[in-house]
């Protein structure tokens, strides 16, 4: 019994150490400015204040960035997941020349570094006159999100018994009818998983946003918040920590309610043991 208690104490102290930076982020964001510079620092805030959150929403462009990030991530997710669902169905359940090679091209691009693609993409989007728009980021984000979503959905699709589709065909459905009636409902957990991953990837993306956007009206949260750090005279850590917390809100929601979909995606995404 004592061994168990000791083990638990040991394990939990590591877990808490790992989680400490995030705890510190929340604590800093609700401390008044003067308490921040107290020595020694207070672990729990003496006075709790939400003034930084209020200022963030009132005095900065945070809400615009937030809106841009939502639009951008939703648009990327919807586009990528729809294309990838059809593509994965085709890759797993149809036979045609070049199918295998295509599947491995997908895997290959899933590992491709963004910095290789960013220069030609930048040139392409400037030529098309799309630079500095949310649309340009949606296009750029498909470069990493589509291979990722395809690869994930492909292995979810492969997990659906082929007999189900066969049964639907014999029962009188067409291929697309069987897809709609039988495969799509079975794939739903996989689609949710993939959509969550795609959303988080888009939400967190930095490099493309840095290169392709230089106006506040189209800037997403990642570069927007970073700008707040760079552009101010004296760094207001409380404000930045409040922004960090707010920026993590979608993630916290996913973690609280949909975490099983995230771990499921892990299993499907190339690290099957």
């Amino acid at each position: 019994m004592t061994r168990r208690i000791l083990f638990n104490l040991f394990a939990w102290s590591i877990v808490l150490a790992v989680a400490f930076p995030l705890f510190w982020m929340v604590v800093t964001s609700i401390k008044p400015q003067f308490e921040l510079f107290r020595r020694p620092p207070t672990i729990l805030p003496e006075t709790v204040t939400f003034e930084h959150y209020w200022r963030l929403l009132k005095e900065t462009n945070f809400l615009i960035y937030f809106r841009n990030s939502v639009v951008l991530s939703v648009a990327t997710t919807v586009t990528v997941v729809s294309i990838a669902t059809l593509g994965a169905y085709s890759l797993v359940r149809f036979r045609y020349r070049g199918r295998e090679s295509l599947a491995f091209l997908v895997l290959f691009t899933y590992l491709l570094p963004s910095v290789v693609l960013i220069i030609p993409l930048y040139l392409m989007l400037v030529t098309l006159g799309l630079a500095n728009s949310i649309l340009s980021l949606v296009i750029a984000y498909t470069t990493f999100a589509l291979p990722y979503a395809l690869w994930l959905l492909r292995s979810f699709m492969a997990g659906i018994p082929e007999d189900l589709e066969s049964a639907a065909l014999v029962d009188g459905a067409s291929r697309l009818g069987a897809f709609w009636d039988v495969i799509l409902p079975q794939l739903l957990p996989g689609i949710i998983s993939t959509a969550l991953f795609t959303f988080i990837l888009s939400w967190n993306e930095y490099l493309f946003a840095l290169v392709l956007i230089n106006s506040d009206s189209a800037r997403p949260l990642t570069t927007g918040v970073m700008n707040m750090l760079v552009s101010s005279f004296n760094i207001e850590w409380s404000l930045l920590m409040a922004a960090s917390v707010m920026m993590s809100v979608p993630l916290i929601i996913v973690f609280a309610f949909l975490q099983s979909y995230l771990t499921r995606g892990f299993g499907a995404g190339g690290v099957k043991g």
Binding site: P161, D163, L164, S166, A167, V170, D171, D181, P185, Q186
Partner: peptide
């Protein structure tokens, strides 16, 4: 035709 599969292939949903 109608077919009965070894796995039954019932639509789970």
């Amino acid at each position: 035709i109608a077919m009965v599969f070894q796995s039954y292939a019932l639509y789970p949903h």
